[in-house]
């Protein structure tokens, strides 16, 4: 059975607007992403790589100074990037929901959790306060919280983990088809983070929604997602099934990211491999990673970064080769060569 994609982003570009109204600088360029129901898609990248801007663009919550210049976003087959604000609002919460990184920031500190939950429900559907309360409590229970107590609590009376569970409940309770989890565990300790992600995966299986997990924690993305994409400098570097990306990274940046990660098993090396250089600015021309790339060629600086595309697993590198061909391998084979470049 072929399912229709929940979210289809094609050629999405987001740019910064000047006071005069002209576009100054691209922050995100040419993003393609497709999410199917029940799928968890990981989006990794350094801070400032454009992950969160992509998420905001989907939600229609880009700050006033940013705007979509190109491309389209389809949610369940409907184009949503050009919808008026009111129509977008009706989609938010109901069709697509978001879990944010900052656990304290998801709920206003001076209003009770219950009020904020029922308010969101009632914003979308006409229902009595009692009904709204019942639904909210039901979902608070599903995320394994003492529902009544949390319902009547203020956000500051809950722990970070409890709050993140609450926002999980808040995002799931209207059974949206898409959930964007924007670094949902960054502010939490490791154990709590694992519990939250377990809950998310569990509930996702039940509701069959698609999840876009944005994270800079490569480990949990590798462990939990079905597919993953890697962003750098506003561009998509690589995209494919998680297992395939892990086993056979195509893009030099992905390769280096995977190397920079402490191994899941075995011994901790004395030093983790670091990616040299500073995270780059968004390049309008050429590959954004080129300045830091050890395999850089002349063409990388000038040619637009749109490289090899295999059916399922694609990379933006001009020289990437799924078959393990010569270009990168040739450079990578020479360890001394790398040493030189890295220094």
């Amino acid at each position: 059975m072929i399912k229709n994609p929940v979210l289809q982003i094609s050629g999405l570009s987001v740019a910064l607007r000047a006071h005069s109204g002209s576009w100054i600088r691209h922050l995100v360029q040419g993003i393609n992403l497709t999410l199917y129901p029940g799928e968890m898609h990981g989006l990794v990248g350094e801070s400032g790589s454009g992950k969160s801007i992509t998420a905001s663009a989907v939600l229609g919550l880009l700050p006033g100074s940013l705007g979509i210049t190109e491309g389209e976003i389809l949610l369940n087959g409907k184009a949503i990037h050009r919808l008026p604000e009111k129509a977008k609002r009706r989609l938010r919460g109901r069709e697509m929901a978001c879990i944010f990184q900052n656990d304290q920031g998801s709920f206003a500190p001076f209003r009770k959790i219950g009020k904020q939950l029922t308010e969101a429900l009632q914003a979308h559907e006409k229902m009595s306060s009692r009904e709204a309360r019942e639904i909210s409590c039901e979902w608070l229970e599903r995320v394994k919280l003492p529902a009544q107590r949390v319902f009547d609590s203020y956000p500051f009376q809950l722990s970070g983990g409890q709050l993140q569970r609450t926002s999980l409940a808040a995002s799931l309770m209207m059974k949206p088809s898409l959930i964007i989890a924007d670094e949902p565990t960054t502010a939490l300790d490791v154990l709590t983070a694992e519990q939250i992600l377990d809950l998310l995966s569990g509930l996702q299986k039940k509701t069959e929604c698609a999840v876009l997990l944005i994270s800079h924690d490569l480990t949990s993305v590798l462990k939990r997602t079905d597919r993953m994409s890697v962003m750098y400098g506003g561009h998509l570097m690589e995209s494919g099934p998680t297992a395939s990306v892990r086993r056979n990274p195509l893009h030099p940046y992905t390769k280096m990211l995977l190397k920079a990660r402490p191994p899941l098993d075995g011994f901790m090396p004395d030093r983790l491999a670091a990616i040299p250089g500073e995270p780059g600015a968004v390049a309008d021309q050429g590959c954004p990673f080129a300045p830091r790339c050890p395999y850089r060629k002349e063409a990388c600086v000038h040619m637009p970064a749109s490289g090899v595309r295999a059916d399922d697993h694609s990379s933006a590198c001009l020289f990437a080769d799924p078959e393990g061909g010569d270009s990168i391998a040739a450079v990578a084979r020479s360890d001394q060569d790398r040493e030189v470049v890295w220094r």
Binding site: R89, L91, R92, G93, N102, G105, A123, S171
Partner: peptide, 25 residues
């Protein structure tokens, strides 16, 4: 504040956000 953005992401209307969230703060 971030909670305003979060409320928007839940689809709460701008009027409610202004009166019950922003004004209150």
């Amino acid at each position: 504040q971030h909670y305003i953005r979060a409320a928007r992401a839940r689809g709460v209307s701008e009027r409610v956000i202004l009166t019950r969230y922003a004004f209150r703060a």
